[in-house]
Amino acid sequence: MNYIEVRNLVKTFKERGKTLTAVDGISFSAKKGEIFGLLGPNGAGKSTTINILTGLLEKDSGTIKLLGFEPEKNWEYVKNHCNVATAYSWLSDVLTIRQNLKVYARLYGVKNHEQKINELLELFELKEIADRKVVRLSSGENTRTVLCKGLINDPKVLFLDECTVGLDPDIADKTRTLIKDYQKKNDCTILFTSHYMYEVEQLCDRIAFMSEGKIVRIDTSDNLKRMIKKRTVEIAVKKDVGALKNFLKTEGVDVWFGKGNNLRFEVTTEKDKMYKVISKIFHQGFMLSNLHIQGPTLDDIFIKISRKK
């Protein structure tokens, strides 16, 4: 069953007489238990999409179904079973972490909310500072507090909007692990937005690339990577680096980095070209001291897709 279903969603804003299209007829769906990523640069329409899905923004046209229902028609059920966490919005800053969570637990009608709050504080390592005011928290603590709020009602659908922005790598990694663990344990659907490619790659089952309000492509991370046929090859030879350069030239490969005995070049995987070139290097008798083949990253895919547009 699709827990998130979006069809032909459009949202425009009027600014100084001009109409700006933030979301331009996008369609996607996410199944139960799936982590679906929205990836794109700033202004691509990711947050606008989430804001529409959370009911904070009114759409111009299109249909939305959450948990199989249209939110406008089943407001109570949908709102009670969805939640959101974002790095861009805080909880009440003069209240403590615990006070904020108590308020939201009651808003969502959570039963045994004291127990639930303690579980979340434990999970996100916030128990020691639970009585600290939000205004005095670091950005990492703040993000974890917002995530606690996001999970307070055991949501079936969770919207995570760039929730690791501004975190140091260690905290960001811990946060991603917590999200992944929670999702596995509770089988909830997560709509995840980020402009950090590795983060999306690590977490998401499927990814939608957004650019200028449109979804350019939806696929799994592996399938997306197959779009790029080029590999970067790094070679270090013990001697005859000049001869190797010339040999590569005859094979139609342009070396675009060379320092000392190290060479770096791009070669296509089409028609097994990469394997053939490497095999020939060995057959020519070049003595290699290092060989490293690097596959494409989501950054490469993103640049390719964005530029193609």
Binding site: G55, E76, L107
Partner: peptide, 17 residues
């Protein structure tokens, strides 16, 4: 205004309130 100042309107109105 308190909710505006602490940028809390987002969480408040994405809840069932």
């Amino acid at each position: 205004l308190e909710d505006f100042w602490s940028r809390n309107l987002y969480h408040l109105f994405s809840s069932p309130i």
